[in-house]
Design a protein around this nucleic acid. Sequence first.
DNA 1: ATAACACATGAATATATGTTCATATGTTTA
DNA 2: TAAACATATGAACATATATTCATGTGTTAT
Lengths: 118, 118
Amino acid sequence: MKKNPDRCECSIIHQETVDHVQQNMPKKEELFDLAELFRVFGDTTRVRIICALFISELCVCDIAALLSMTQSAISHQLRILKQSRLVKYRREGKAVFYSLDDDHIKNIFAQGMDHISE
Amino acid sequence: MKKNPDRCECSIIHQETVDHVQQNMPKKEELFDLAELFRVFGDTTRVRIICALFISELCVCDIAALLSMTQSAISHQLRILKQSRLVKYRREGKAVFYSLDDDHIKNIFAQGMDHISE
DNA sequence: ATAACACATGAATATATGTTCATATGTTTA
DNA sequence: TAAACATATGAACATATATTCATGTGTTAT
């Protein structure tokens, strides 16, 4: 996944436009972080977990039962959601309850739904 | 990537909650499509292309030069964006100009930026 | 204390995916 | 028509990642 060939093999057609865009683009690192966030949303299991948590706080076993998946698989995915600061959790005895920890997810998902149902 | 073990190995703790969530969740196929859309946003190159197109319509070579990547790599990614109905294109002589074809992307990206800059 | 339960996690495996390379397609110009 | 250019695309390769399996950690109950 190298990303810096010496130069583009095409002759550049619109240098001024390219310069203008270059000057107004967000920084590469910022866009990397943005892609990283969307990558978290780009998995069916995680999307289903998030949608479930829209409706109710749930413990790990609840989610596993709901999605017919193993506790381990769910736990791994919850870790990723935790690392992205999208879910929070609280311990209650042996159980750990997860819930959403972000106000933007709902809007992002709603907009996404709008797109796919066009 | 099997997703249907015979049953969750845990005893289910909150069956009523699980039932309630199950009844109110969007359909699995719908959530698959949603994840598929976000997966498209989950790559740095595609995110950078989209951000560039926020600013200006661009031909393939312009984008390749802008991102210091090969024409081929850009072309492959544009195909994915095309298939997801996120970009459109028009031909002008030898060049093909790409632009955004969706009103939701801007909102989704703005919300995403909000999240990462928290 | 020890067994049982809920959850977390490291390693391994299978699959998905982004880039490269070679080449094909479509358009313009000589 | 042929050459040059811009773009598209199939195959190969390398990397990323989701699930499984085995096992570790933390809590409760006996």
